[in-house]
């Protein structure tokens, strides 16, 4: 029994150690680092332009002064989207009055999720349209965006609702770098995401 207990304790200590380390250190830059002219460049969300629920064009510049929390969804999604949205709403409730934070939800089903449909969805969710953008546009461009956020999203007739995608929630800093993510389908994972958002915000206070 002792022989088994010792490794378990070691693992627990190690896990505890890791946890403390991530809280004290700066959030990592996620994704591949590229080197241009000898200069290292962190993965950055490329230039984009989509239309939000109020027919306003939202692009990189619209978000450059904000950190934002983002996910991919579609309004008729019968499977994981409602769960993820519930967690997005939890985050929204905490940061809705913080002017440094925006929320962005990209649809992966622009055929059905027109601007009008997204407007209705945002209204039904009861959220501030200037705080939370629901974006639609060219389908291929939207699915390409998912790649840049490391989200798996593709059309699949066998999946519920016709699309397969992961329910990750992503944190992006003011320069378009992906800094953290959590599983939007798991409440505990999102619990651990809040301090990461706070941690990123704190770096802008200095």
């Amino acid at each position: 029994m002792k022989k088994i207990l010792i490794p378990i304790c070691a693992i627990l200590l190690f896990a505890q150690g890791c946890k403390q380390e991530t809280i004290s250190k700066e959030l990592p830059f996620l994704g591949r680092t590229t080197e241009i002219n000898g200069e290292k460049k962190n993965h950055t969300i490329p230039a984009f332009a989509f239309v939000n629920q109020d027919s306003i064009i939202i692009n990189n510049e619209s978000l450059q002064d904000y950190i934002y929390i983002t996910d991919f969804f579609f309004t008729s999604c019968p499977s994981i989207c409602p769960k993820v949205m519930k967690q997005m709403l939890r985050l929204y409730d905490k940061y809705k009055d913080d002017d440094r934070v925006k929320f962005v939800s990209y649809t992966i089903d622009p055929k059905r999720d027109t601007q009008a449909q997204l407007k209705l969805y945002a209204n039904n969710l009861g959220v501030d349209h200037n705080k939370w953008y629901f974006l639609t546009g060219d389908k291929d461009a939207l699915l390409d965006m998912a790649d840049d956020y490391f989200i798996v999203a593709y059309e699949d007739a066998d999946s519920p609702g016709g699309f397969d995608h992961s329910g990750k929630i992503i944190l992006v800093d003011k320069k378009g770098h992906v800094r953290a993510f959590c599983e939007g389908t798991e409440e505990e994972s999102v619990d651990g995401f809040f301090p990461q958002v706070d941690q990123l915000l704190a770096t802008y206070d200095q």
């Binding site: 309004t75 409602p82 769960k83 949205m85 519930k86 709403l89 969805y121 209204n123 039904n124 969710l125 009861g126």
Partner: peptide, 12 residues
């Protein structure tokens, strides 16, 4: 979700 409360007006 699991508590039956839905999602605002999206899911009653």
């Amino acid at each position: 979700m699991e508590d039956g409360t839905g999602l605002e007006k999206v899911i009653p």
